[in-house]
Amino acid sequence: MNITFDHTRIRVSDLEKSIDWYCRTCGFEVLKRTDKSPSGNQLAHLQIPGSAHKLELTYSPDFEVKFPEDLVHTCIRVDDVVVYCEELEKMDLEMDLWPSNWREKFAEGKKMAFITDPDGYEVEILEHE
């Protein structure tokens, strides 16, 4: 039996804003959208080119997005965390880059950062191994 890990779903409070954020900051592309799923949600399936795993963004106007802090995070890998963080700083986005002193921290330690999406989900940034 062949088993693969296909996608992860997160609930979002503004589908358009989340699609834009994930595409601009993390390199995702929209694979498909559904205006009304069997359960009545709007869905967007995103994927980073070259990655098999997908991110499913789910929106429902009657669902309040609320979760305990630091409960869920996703992770992307990039060629160079420093270059990537510098690119993120240039974007016209509200950024919550951690650690805030990443230039000094990365000079002598492990290169790893976190950014926060519009709903408070963290995205971890690591370098390719």
Results as ranks from 00 to 15, higher is better:
I3H: 10
I3W: 10
T4K: 15
T4V: 15
T4P: 08
D6E: 15
T8L: 10
R9A: 15
I10W: 09
I10N: 02
D14W: 06
K17H: 04
S18W: 06
S18G: 03
C23M: 11
C26Y: 12
G27A: 05
L31I: 15
K32D: 12
K36N: 13
K36E: 15
S37Y: 01
P38L: 06
P38E: 10
N41Q: 10
L43C: 00
L43H: 04
L46Y: 03
I48N: 00
P49K: 05
G50S: 03
S51Q: 09
S51D: 10
A52T: 13
Y59S: 02
S60Q: 13
P61S: 05
P61A: 02
P61H: 06
D62P: 11
F63Q: 12
E64M: 10
V65Y: 04
K66M: 08
P68F: 05
L71D: 10
H73C: 06
T74C: 11
C75I: 03
I76S: 00
V83E: 13
C85N: 03
W98K: 13
S100I: 15
S100C: 13
N101I: 08
W102C: 01
K105Q: 14
G109H: 14
K111H: 06
M112I: 14
A113H: 03
P118L: 06
G120R: 03
E122M: 12
H128G: 04
E129I: 11
